[in-house]
Deep mutational scan, measured.
Amino acid sequence: MPSETPQAEVGPTGCPHRSGPHSAKGSLEKGSPEDKEAKEPLWIRPDAPSRCTWQLGRPASESPHHHTAPAKSPKILPDILKKIGDTPMVRINKIGKKFGLKCELLAKCEFFNAGGSVKDRISLRMIEDAERDGTLKPGDTIIEPTSGNTGIGLALAAAVRGYRCIIVMPEKMSSEKVDVLRALGAEIVRTPTNARFDSPESHVGVAWRLKNEIPNSHILDQYRNASNPLAHYDTTADEILQQCDGKLDMLVASVGTGGTITGIARKLKEKCPGCRIIGVDPEGSILAEPEELNQTEQTTYEVEGIGYDFIPTVLDRTVVDKWFKSNDEEAFTFARMLIAQEGLLCGGSAGSTVAVAVKAAQELQEGQRCVVILPDSVRNYMTKFLSDRWMLQKGFLKEEDLTEKKPWWWHLRVQELGLSAPLTVLPTITCGHTIEILREKGFDQAPVVDEAGVILGMVTLGNMLSSLLAGKVQPSDQVGKVIYKQFKQIRLTDTLGRLSHILEMDHFALVV
């Protein structure tokens, strides 16, 4: 994948999101292997301009796509893939009243899908469409860049269908997702969380590099694949309309690839034109409109599966009536509230959605109805927002919020430890010299600072030695090549209790 991002070429006709291997024109390309080798690009942008032909009021008969309808489940399912879809609609009884809503608040519980998330729908649909058009064949390999849930859905379907599955996901995604993927037989590649989507090191860039190296491999490409919004247009939206008897006044959905909100909203605009569509985008993402909503100094966020630093091709923002931004604290607070007060075992993005819903639905009156999409299960986040310690460490809970008995030293300040200034190293000294210094002084790690004293990161003896043994660096290389740029900081005025929580999850903390 090139470091400079080429513009994806656009073909003359058809839909841009065809499933299957992508040609340089962004659509299915038939021909000899030699032709494909000559024409197939190194990668295709996940934010390529959409060429979708959908228009409100256009006859369904003019759609270029294969459409399906929700099917009634048999008493005995032939395999677990038949437990994807037909998820329950559940009334939220307490939270709406707590925040003064007059309307009825309903939750579409997508964590009841077989793999635990709304992404099971698009995973199965992308595979079925690729099999139907002859792209996927027995023994082929599926590769997908994902925040985890699409990966789980694909790995689940691949396990049943017999495909090899490789999932490329950023490091910030939970260990629970990784464990589930491994249990399903998927191979996992992790990428830096802070890598831009168009960087060769991003999950998108690495996935395309693997595709170019592995024979008979395919990126189904949830960011561009029409099967993504079509899955929701054909099934999720129809289920909502049936469950609500066609009567709903507002739908609120958090947005990642945009397939969920695009597919549902398009069908609702056709069948229930008075329904307002509300999009939820986390602070630090750029999906919301108008652009002024996205202006923030924050560039990272903890909530998973929603928000991006690019506009995915499948996201149709014209069908969203209003956007709201959400933050991590309210997302996790509301997710825990949904679990504790409503018994809905949902993930953090569901918290984002409901946090926005109780604001947006203030305009609705008694007798009206708001539906929220709860995308995934708490299963993926047992060591994250479900953990009091994690919430404390991230600053989303305060010590006084917890009532468990603490040891005698818990409320003492870090400054009472009488710490001395640490050994520091410059980023320009060599790895070999740094190892000598650390061994001589008896230290395992040291902060790396520039000549102005600005902290650049941390270097550890173990990481340097393993990097040297693996051949990633040489003793003569500058130590700046092996620094940890993500590390926890703590102030002298913070409590030892807070430091204790940090050290339970990290090997060190830097006192500043």
Rank of each mutant, 00 (worst) to 15 (best):
P21Q: 02
G153K: 04
P16L: 13
K97G: 12
K36Q: 15
A237L: 02
L81T: 09
S23Q: 10
P59W: 07
T193E: 10
T150G: 00
V204A: 09
S227F: 10
P215K: 08
Q242R: 12
S174Q: 03
S32H: 10
R164S: 14
G185H: 05
Y223G: 00
D47V: 08
L210H: 01
S27D: 12
A107V: 14
P46M: 01
Q55K: 13
G263S: 00
A157V: 09
S3W: 02
K271P: 05
P46V: 06
P229M: 05
V168F: 05
T191K: 01
H218L: 09
L106G: 08
D245H: 08
E270F: 09
W208F: 07
A69K: 09
D86Q: 10
V118H: 12
K247Y: 06
M173P: 03
K72Q: 11
R164W: 04
G256S: 02
G148C: 01
L230C: 10
H17D: 11
A155D: 04
P273R: 08
G185T: 01
L28I: 15
R45H: 12
R209F: 06
A24L: 14
E128V: 14
E104I: 03
I95R: 04
A253W: 02
S61Y: 13
T146W: 01
E171F: 03
K247T: 13
R164L: 06
I166N: 07
N149A: 04
M89C: 08
R276T: 11
H232P: 01
T87S: 07
H66E: 02
A226K: 10
S19F: 09
A253C: 12
G258E: 03
L77E: 02
R58Q: 14
Q222I: 01
K39W: 14
G274R: 14
P59I: 13
L106R: 08
F197K: 08
K119H: 04
A226P: 10
D47P: 05
M89L: 12
G259T: 00
G153T: 01
I166F: 07
P215N: 04
E187R: 02
E128A: 01
K271Y: 08
K83I: 11
L81Y: 04
H22M: 02
H218N: 13
A158E: 02
P229L: 07
G115K: 07
G26S: 10
G115L: 06
D249W: 02
P215Q: 08
I122C: 01
L42Q: 11
L184W: 01
K177M: 01
A155Q: 04
S202P: 08
A159G: 03
G115P: 07
P16E: 09
Q222K: 04
S19G: 10
S174I: 00
S147P: 00
C165I: 04
E171D: 10
V204F: 09
N113M: 06
V204N: 07
T260I: 11
Y233D: 00
D249S: 06
N225C: 00
K211T: 11
L77N: 09
L106P: 07
G185W: 05
L268A: 04
R182M: 04
A157L: 04
H17L: 13
S63M: 09
L181D: 00
F111G: 05
K82A: 10
P49D: 09
C272Q: 09
G14V: 09
L106S: 04
P16S: 03
T68I: 15
R18S: 12
L184Q: 06
P273V: 10
M250E: 00
F112I: 05
D234W: 03
T68K: 10
L156F: 02
K172C: 02
G57Y: 07
T53K: 06
N194W: 10
Q7F: 13
R161V: 09
G116R: 07
C275K: 00
N194L: 08
Y223F: 07
Q242D: 13
G85Q: 01
G85R: 14
M126C: 06
F112M: 10
L268K: 03
Q243W: 05
P170V: 03
R266H: 10
P200T: 08
V180W: 00
I214S: 01
P16F: 03
V160D: 02
K97V: 07
D238N: 10
A114D: 09
I44R: 12
I76A: 06
I122K: 00
E40Y: 09
I152D: 00
D86K: 10
R132I: 03
A157G: 13
K98N: 11
T135C: 05
I152M: 06
K102I: 08
D249M: 00
A231W: 02
L210S: 03
E9D: 13
P2S: 12
T53C: 05
T262R: 00
